[in-house]
Structures are given as structure tokens and as C-alpha cells.
Design a protein around this nucleic acid. Structure first.
Ligand SMILES: [Mn+2]
Ligand SMILES: [Mn+2]
Ligand SMILES: [Zn+2]
Ligand SMILES: [Zn+2]
Lengths: 133, 133
DNA sequence: AATGGAAATGAAATCCATTTTCACTTAGGC
DNA sequence: GCCTAAGTGAAAATGGATTTCATTTCCATT
């Protein structure tokens, strides 16, 4: 089939900013706003929120909600993984960890629910804070 | 040693409400507010927030922050566990699952961080919603 | 080109959980 | 009783996210 409707220009800019940040990089809507604004000074924060929602629906970006963080963060879509949040400095890092599907299946059966997603977040001290503090 | 300072009466009421809710029961500050208010009509929401923070520091209650939920939830302190959130109705259930310590150790070593806590949340459809919807 | 409807846009208003401020009351060691 | 620290609640402030609404842009169709 034909390539579906191309992304509106502004949404593409948002996608670019998230993509250029790269894997393992997590940006808040405000941070994205600031970066997009460098290329499109007139854009409004509202459009950032709307664009991020759309891009998430389309599977281009992922939203992560980390307990303790004051705002949601976005990253380019990629392989599923866990996150680590340093409770000292707030830094968020990727952690290569996923609960295997057969474990999820067992849990789902056991609890009589249908599990569609997992969110794993670790909390502690990052190497930088351990070194300095 | 002497029993440390007894809990202020209002904080004790908050603790009672959370405890009476039982394991596997998760209450938001507003819900707790409503319940405490039945016994102490004059109490303010501010005191609920302050009490919950204190009770958490003292280890009597646990706060859980579930992605997708609009407010934090509290439960009586107890064994560590994971949570399941139904994306259809919002219901939060306990899930008997913890990432084993040796796995955490390996991850921590691998990523050069110090892991102090884990937060595991599953998302999907609860049995009730699967049956009805 | 003209047209019309759908989508996108941004400013402003609104929402809402949580925190902060501040003046006041309470509790308890002395 | 006095004094200080802790507790309290109303009200205001905060701040991320959403909603509203009037306007503009986009594009497929004439
Ligand atoms: Mn990530
Ligand atoms: Mn629980
Ligand atoms: Zn750190
Ligand atoms: Zn449900």
C-alpha cells in the first residue's frame, strides 16, 4: 500500500529531535520544546504535546513514566528495556532487562489477567553520584 | 529502648485507614482524606499529605506510583511486590513478583550503579474487564 | 484558480495533584 | 505556668498536562 499520510512538518521536527537524541536519551516535553524551538521558533508547547502523542500512536517514540521524575520522558522507539533512576541526581539510564514472556504468561494465568506491557524501573545511585558523593 | 514518640493522633488515624484497607488495597490521598474525615471531620487534606509522608518515612506505609494513574496510591507496608494496572478500568492489583537479588546485583555491576529499589508494573486487562468488554 | 472540509496550530484558559506559606493552636519537657 | 517545637488547616502557589477556541494550513476535488 501507499505510504500513509506524511507527518506534518512540525511533528517531523519533534520526531527528529527525539531521534537525534538517540537511544538511551530521554527528553521531557519541555526539553523537546526548547530544542524544536531552535528550528521553529514560533511553535507552541501545545503542539509538542500533541505531536508526541501522535508519534507515540504511530510507534515512532516511546513515553516513559518514571516514578520520582517530575515529568514524562520520551525516547526514540526501540527494543524494550528497563530504566534506572538515580535518586540523587535524577539521571535516567537504560538498563538491559526484560521480564521474559513465559514468566509474564505464568503471572497472567496465575492472576487471571491479560498482561500487555511491563514497566520496570530501578532506583539507586548512579556511578557519577557514587564517585562524587 | 523506649517506644519512640507516639504518632500524633491524626497521623494514627491515617495509618488506621490505610491498614484497615488491607494488603492489596491501594488508596489515593483523596480517598484516604474522605475516610479519615468520617472520623475526624475537621481534618485538612494538607494533613493527609503530611501524615502519609511521615508514615512512609517511618516505614508504616508504602507509596506506589503507577504509570497511567492520575494520583499516587498508598498501601500498608508489607512484602515487596509488583503491581498490575488495568488500562481499561484503572484498577490496581498486587502481583506476586520480585526480581531476585542476584539478578539485581548482576545488573548493578554491569551498569556500574547501585540499585536500592525496584518498581515493576504490568499493564493490561483485568479479569473483570476481559469478561465484560 | 476556486472551494470546502479536515487537520493542525498556538494563545489562553483550565484542570488537578501536590506543595508551600502563614498565622494559629497544641503538646510536652522544664 | 512557660517556652519551644511540632502540628494544623485555609488559602495560595506551583507546575505538568489538557482543553477550548478562533484562526490558519493543507489538500483533494471541482
Ligand atoms: Mn530508555
Ligand atoms: Mn500493592
Ligand atoms: Zn546520580
Ligand atoms: Zn479492568
Amino acid at each position: 500500500m501507499m505510504p500513509s499520510t506524511p507527518l506534518p512538518k512540525n511533528y517531523q521536527l519533534i520526531r527528529d529531535v527525539v531521534d537525534e537524541c538517540g537511544l538511551g536519551c530521554h527528553l521531557t516535553p519541555s526539553e523537546i520544546y526548547a530544542k524544536v524551538r531552535e528550528r521553529q521558533p514560533g511553535i507552541g508547547l501545545t503542539t509538542i504535546y500533541r505531536g508526541l502523542e501522535r508519534l507515540r500512536e504511530l510507534g515512532f517514540v516511546s513515553e516513559i513514566e518514571v516514578p520520582g521524575a517530575d515529568a514524562a520522558a520520551y525516547e526514540p522507539a526501540g527494543p524494550h528495556h528497563a530504566h534506572f533512576r538515580c535518586s540523587s541526581c535524577g539521571r535516567i539510564e537504560d538498563v538491559a532487562f526484560v521480564i521474559p514472556a513465559n514468566t509474564l504468561d505464568a503471572l497472567a494465568r496465575e492472576h487471571g489477567v491479560e498482561i500487555k506491557d511491563q514497566r520496570v524501573t530501578f532506583e539507586g545511585r548512579c556511578s557519577r553520584c557514587t564517585a562524587s558523593g
